[in-house]
Design a protein around this nucleic acid. Structure first.
Lengths: 205, 205
DNA sequence: GGATGTGAAAGTCTTCACAGCG
DNA sequence: CGCTGTGAAGACTTTCACATCC
């Protein structure tokens, strides 16, 4: 029962802490972390509470032990494999974006209907045809999927992913997915975001 | 003082209503709209309240008049022009994704540092060099920008956009932007979303 | 009867404020 | 003294529930 927002911020903190460590910084105060993460100091402390991290009033939090706490909390014991469905412009961009970004959370299989893409290897990742979706996911024990297909296909593919054993989906298609509650869905709707920004931009002076 | 979440959902309703109209459907009930949008009926009705839409218990809401209400509420009188900064894989994918998607909200200018991309035209959109950023934005009266540059450059570019008169930014860089409150910022952090999904996926049975 | 419109309740998330400690 | 850890208050969102109307 960990709040969703908190989990999101914790991943941000981890990213920032990794930067800090490479910069050679050992300790950090909540308000410094907050500044970098775009949050408040109280928010940071409360978030860190849920992972049981301890800081000292004197020096703040030790970066390295915080990273250990975060990893223990966020990461499953063994790494997570990710499947990517849809190798259009967006899918390809995501593939290259995630390549080598986070060890332990890698895209290990891609799927597309286009025969030209199938059996090719893009960014070290093999592309299969859609008919193999279930087989590959089950053989590789993949639990997380990125859905980058047209809206018209999203529900159908989502159903298949769910049946194949997928437990979490990042959905880029601008459609609501109706899936059993055993699947966690995060929607990224870039059109919605752009329209939202356009709306609030027009309200600003 | 309209809630941010509501604005986001209103844009979804509009998308759905457009589909319905092309399907030839004239009226719709709140629970039907809710189903398509992945919300609840009460939520839909409350959202529609803020735009002053009226439905009848008999037939629900008339799609066409709802669309008119939505446009009157969401859209500024004249269209919004959008600038895209960063033509890497992601930037290019976004450019092709948005092409012709929404009249009145178009990407009219792109910017990149890569000399090979500058002065080219991708998807009907001219690419300028970064030095022209301020001039083009001011001449074209652009108010909204999409930031698709590496995290290391995001703050710098954000500052320039803000100074050039941009009032809303969709930020794809995994960094918090520190900008004056005259600029509305929406962050889309795909790494965060993927990690969030991986976390909750590993908690599901 | 079944849907809308909406005040009020419930829930969720963030911020405040302060005790306690180094 | 300034920062951490955290109960309590506050702000924001969603859901409930019901009067009202076709």
């Amino acid at each position: 029962v960990t709040p969703e927002r908190t989990v999101g911020r914790l991943t941000q903190y981890r990213r920032i802490l990794n930067e800090l460590v490479t910069e050679g910084i050992e300790c950090i105060h909540s308000h410094q972390l907050a500044l970098r993460a775009g949050a408040t100091a109280a928010q940071v402390r409360r978030d860190l509470m849920v992972i049981g991290a301890a800081g000292s009033p004197k020096k703040g939090y030790r970066c390295i032990s915080l990273l250990q706490n975060l990893a223990a909390f966020l990461d499953p014991p063994s790494g997570q494999k990710v499947a990517l469905v849809g190798l259009g412009n967006l899918g390809l961009a995501l593939l290259s974006y995630f390549r080598g970004r986070r060890p332990g959370l890698e895209i290990v299989a891609a799927f597309d209907t286009d025969p030209e893409k199938v059996n090719a290897v893009a960014n070290d990742c093999p592309c299969h045809q859609m008919t193999e979706l279930d087989a590959v996911i089950q053989k590789e024990q993949i639990r997380v999927a990125i859905l980058a297909v047209p809206a018209s296909a999203a529900q159908h593919v989502g159903d298949r992913l769910s049946l194949a054993g997928i437990r979490g989906i990042v959905n880029f298609a601008p459609t609501a997915l109706h899936l059993p509650p055993t699947v966690f869905v995060e929607n990224i709707d870039v059109t919605m975001s752009l329209e939202k920004v356009a709306f609030f931009a027009s309200k600003k002076t």
